[in-house]
Design a protein around this nucleic acid. Structure first.
Lengths: 205, 205
DNA sequence: ACGAAATCAAACAGGTCTGTATGGTTAAGC
DNA sequence: GCTTAACCATACAGACCTGTTTGATTTCGT
């Protein structure tokens, strides 16, 4: 038995998503399949039979691990959110320079994401857009996800000695969400650079 | 027979949406019901039976006017897009001042929209987020809708004598889309002012 | 090697989905 | 008043939906 740390699947899968990663057990295979189908074809449009079939598992196994389709969606969002953040902060950790450099680099990293042929937008935004307006569960999941990024932005703002760090957090929210959606709608990754130019000007040329 | 130009339905319905407007014929009743249900509960999650029931029409009447659910979605987006633009440009027409004033005022108008309890985000963005990545029909519908707004932005940029008017168009796209999505996810209309501050700084304080 | 837990395929229950067909009823133009 | 078109309720077809059940089989810890 050899542990394939450098398997092809691991090497070729986009780092910002769980889709395509090695799955050792049926539960992870279900999560992988569900993530792929939910994100590429929509949450409501994807049935559990399709997910189990794609995962190569029995439907009963799916329901043994996830109480309902809704819980499966929650689990997919949580895992996919973590995968994205790991990738994002991993890229960010390699950026050296001032906080301003790092804040601007955020949009270079987003451009990488947008350029991937498999880019399908932000799963949290897509899920909220699809759901009933009153659905607070998805909104909370999105809030948790974004709060991780916002904390980092706030730290940069404080390191810059800004009086109201939260202002920068909110500005970055608009620019990041705007770049994501504009890139998704138009299939044009250049919107990342557009957002970058706006934050650069805001932080002083 | 009196024509009720000042009926309650007309007075109380939000101006930025078709939802709640008077419908004279079954076709318009179907469009009204479909718009409301699609936008509030999602496109895939809403069935044609529910739409016909809500519209007070027979399902056969629905299919007499719209060849398929997909065509109905197209018609809803087109009509709702036009309603929104009529409202938006109507508001914009009342703004007096320089092009910079008008460009900034865009976000005050968006704030009105976001503040409405019935705000459900941009139907085009939501539809694209819900659909298969390869669906070009929805992307084209969104492109047509946004192009009307973009043309106006470009005119302002040219009036300002900017060298590259298209740069401003793209910046506004990021800020408008970002404000819409941030407001939708967080239920906080203040993101309009955040976007406004960014464009104000870009156009010179 | 044995017992427990996990997984499997397949069928089932009870709805709901889109789209069509049938035949009766209303409304409008001439 | 008659004709024609629009609209109505209802039922149907065939597929798909979520979730459960059954009982056989495989995996795994010990």
């Amino acid at each position: 038995m050899t542990i394939e740390l450098n398997s092809d699947a691991f090497e070729t899968a986009p780092a910002w998503t769980c889709i395509g990663r090695k799955a050792a057990n049926p539960k992870d295979r279900v999560l992988n399949a569900a993530t792929e189908l939910f994100c590429h074809h929509g949450f409501a449009a994807t049935g559990v039979d399709t997910i189990a079939s794609r995962a190569g598992t029995a439907k009963s196994t799916l329901y043994a691990h996830f109480k309902s389709k809704e819980k499966l969606i929650d689990a997919v969002l949580e895992r996919e959110g973590k995968a994205w953040r790991d990738w994002f902060f991993g890229r960010l950790g390699k950026i050296k320079g001032t906080p301003k450099d790092k804040l601007c680099a955020v949009f270079d990293i987003l451009a990488e994401w947008f350029s991937d042929p498999e880019f399908y937008g932000c799963p949290f935004i897509n899920a909220i857009g699809e759901a009933t307006s009153e659905n607070e569960t998805l909104r909370n999941a999105a809030k948790v996800h974004k709060s991780h990024v916002n904390l980092w932005i706030q730290a940069q703002a404080m390191e810059l000695g800004m009086e109201r760090p939260d202002d920068l957090v909110r500005e970055m929210t608009v620019l990041v969400d705007g770049a994501i959606v504009a890139a998704q709608v138009s299939r044009d990754s250049d919107f990342a650079q557009v957002a970058k130019s706006l934050i650069a000007r805001r932080l002083g040329d």
